[in-house]
Design a protein around this nucleic acid. Structure first.
Lengths: 130, 130
DNA sequence: TCTTTGTTATATATGTTATACAACAAATAA
DNA sequence: TTATTTGTTGTATAACATATATAACAAAGA
C-alpha cells in the first residue's frame, strides 16, 4: 500500500490520502481485512503531520470504508452501503457530467470514459487474484 | 433562469450557484448568448451578498462558460474546450466512480446511472426546441 | 443627469486546513 | 513489570477559504 501526497496540489492532503485509499479498494489492491499503514508511520513516510493522516482515516471511517481500533490498526471493512447512497452519488455524478456536457464533450465520449475507468478497476481486480 | 441557494448545505453558496448554471447549460435551458441575472438582482432575490454571486460568475468566467461585460451583463459563451479538459475530467470521474465501486455499487448500476443522467440532459434539450 | 451594469478595494467574522506539542488508554513484546 | 506501539483526545497556532458589509469607480444607456 503506497500512499503519496502532493503539497502543490489544490486538493487538501487528507482528501488526497482518502481518494487513494478509495481507488485502491475499487481496484482490489485493498480488500476487506487489508491493513492500512499506522497513522504515525504514514505521516513520517509522507513528511506530513499525523493529525492530517488521522483526519483522512476518520473520514474513511465515517464513510464506512475502514474500521479503526488499537489492536489491529486501520482495516478495510466489508462494504455496507446506506440505502440513500445511490441517490446521493447520482446527484454528484449529475454535477460532474453536466460540467463535461456544458464544456462541449460529446456524450458518447463521456460514457466511453466512464466505461473505460470502470473496466480498469475490474481488470486490476483480476490481476490481483493471480 | 431560476437560481436558488440552500444555506444549510455544506456546499459553498458560490459553488451551488455555479453548479446550477452548469446544469442549466447542459440541459439546454441556457444556450450560447443566453443572459444570466445581474449580480445585484440575483443577490437580492436569493438573500445573499452580491460578492458571493460575483465569485460564482468569476468562477464560471474562468471555466470559459460565460462572458462578462458592462454592456450585456453575464452571457453564456460558445464552449471552447481546452485540450487538457477530457483528461482532467477523466481523473475526477475516476475518483467519483472509485467511491461507488468501493461502496459496493454494481458496475452496471454505475453505467446505467450515468446513461440515465446524460439522457435526461438530451431530452430536456429537445423539449426546449419546441 | 440618473440608473444600471460590472469592477475594485478594504474590513470583519467565521470556518477549514495543516501543523505542533502534549498526554492518555489499550494492546503487545521484551 | 517495563517499554513500545497503537489509536485517541486536547489545546494552540498559522494560513487560507468563505461570506458579509460598506464604499467607491467606470462605462453604457434611458
Amino acid at each position: 500500500m503506497i500512499l503519496t501526497v502532493d503539497l502543490d496540489n489544490e486538493v487538501p492532503i487528507y482528501q488526497q490520502l482518502r481518494d487513494q485509499v478509495v481507488e485502491a479498494i475499487a481496484v482490489g489492491e485493498l480488500r476487506p481485512g487489508s491493513p492500512l499503514p499506522a497513522t504515525r508511520a504514514l505521516a513520517a513516510d509522507s513528511g506530513i503531520n499525523f493529525h492530517t493522516v488521522n483526519k483522512a482515516y476518520d473520514l474513511l471511517r465515517r464513510e464506512g470504508l475502514i474500521r479503526l481500533n488499537r489492536k489491529t490498526g486501520a482495516v478495510v471493512t466489508v462494504p455496507d452501503p446506506h440505502p440513500s447512497f445511490p441517490a446521493d452519488w447520482a446527484a454528484r455524478a449529475k454535477t460532474l457530467l453536466a460540467e463535461a456536457v456544458a464544456k462541449g464533450m460529446p456524450t458518447e465520449e463521456l460514457l466511453a470514459t466512464c466505461r473505460s475507468v470502470i473496466d480498469s478497476f475490474a481488470n486490476n481486480e483480476l490481476e490481483d487474484n493471480s
